[in-house]
Design a protein around this nucleic acid. Structure first.
Length: 274
DNA sequence: ATTGAGACCTGTCGGC
DNA sequence: TGCCGACAGGTCTCAA
């Protein structure tokens, strides 16, 4: 489920549970997710306090008292459940949670909170990064600008796109162009900017690499769809998954189409997105 | 260096 | 009901 807004919402929900709190026990129920857990993962985490919970692109970053960072990616289906330790004699109700068979990591915190990571498809990952090692970490070292920071604007987008022949939609999904946009928000941002997902990325720049108006429209649209999704606590599908439905732009009258780009679905209105 | 295809893994949904 | 293919909000790797 998670693109940048969803990860940010997870971060906000988890922050009060983890920040300032210690890992009392760490239970690994398997030895890998998308990649193996690092050596002695549980031992290295146990006893440490989380000093901050931040986010970079779609990664959650828990800074630890040792200066190390616990890096977490939710993949497609990853998520956390927060419960509280029960006094012995308690029982678990059957319907309290879905598939415990996909509960892969269980953190018991010094507060009594029990934080469980569940991930059916196991496209998620956890890693432990040495103090000062984060910037060089493979997962984050090549990420482009944070779309909700001042680093991201029409100029940054233009620089990243002006020599690229890929379709605009695929450029938005490229995490080195802008970090955190995924398949839903890429379609949504292009719709908002009235730009065709099939258009070459380089066409938002002039031949000399200056931003065209489309670059500013697209940068603003990316920011807006992400901001709105966070504020509304979830995406609003104005084109995504609306194949065959009417374009919601006032006065357009077009019909939403689904195409496949890079083996993933793209939704757009051929009538108003140029 | 860039690009597209395939791989990774499980679940769900629609059609026959 | 059961089976089968298509599809799912993400990355990574490989070959051209």
């Amino acid at each position: 489920m998670p693109e940048l807004p969803e990860v940010e919402l997870v971060r906000r929900a988890l922050e009060p549970v983890l920040a300032g709190v210690r890992f009392d026990t760490v239970l690994l129920r398997r030895k890998n997710l998308r990649i193996p857990f690092p050596r002695r993962f549980a031992e290295r985490l146990t006893g440490q306090t989380v000093t901050a919970l931040t986010r970079r692109a779609k990664y959650l970053l828990a800074t630890l008292s040792s200066g190390e960072t616990l890096l977490i990616h939710l993949g497609m289906t990853g998520g956390f459940r927060v419960e509280h330790a029960r006094i012995s004699g308690g029982y678990r109700s059957e319907d309290a949670s879905d598939d415990e068979k996909h509960d892969h990591v269980v953190f018991t915190m010094s507060s009594g909170a029990v934080v469980t990571f569940n991930d059916a498809r196991r496209f998620g990952l956890m890693d432990l990064v040495a103090r000062n090692g984060l910037a060089a970490h493979k997962a984050v070292s090549k990420l482009g600008p944070e779309p909700l920071s001042a680093d991201f604007d029409a100029a940054a987008l233009t620089r990243a796109c002006h020599k690229r022949s890929v379709p605009l939609k695929l450029a938005l999904l490229d995490q080195t162009v802008v970090a955190g946009v995924g398949n839903i928000y890429a379609s949504e941002a292009l719709w908002l900017a009235r730009l065709s997902p099939r258009r070459r990325a380089a066409t938002i720049a002039t031949p000399t690499g200056r931003p065209r108006p489309a670059a500013a429209h697209l940068a603003a649209a990316v920011t807006e769809v992400l901001d709105q999704a966070i504020a509304r606590r979830g995406p609003r599908f104005r084109v995504y998954d609306r194949e065959g439905g009417p374009c919601l732009r006032r006065g357009c009258g077009g019909t939403i189409r689904r195409i496949v780009q890079g083996a993933r679905s793209t939704f757009y209105c051929p009538r108003c997105q140029k």
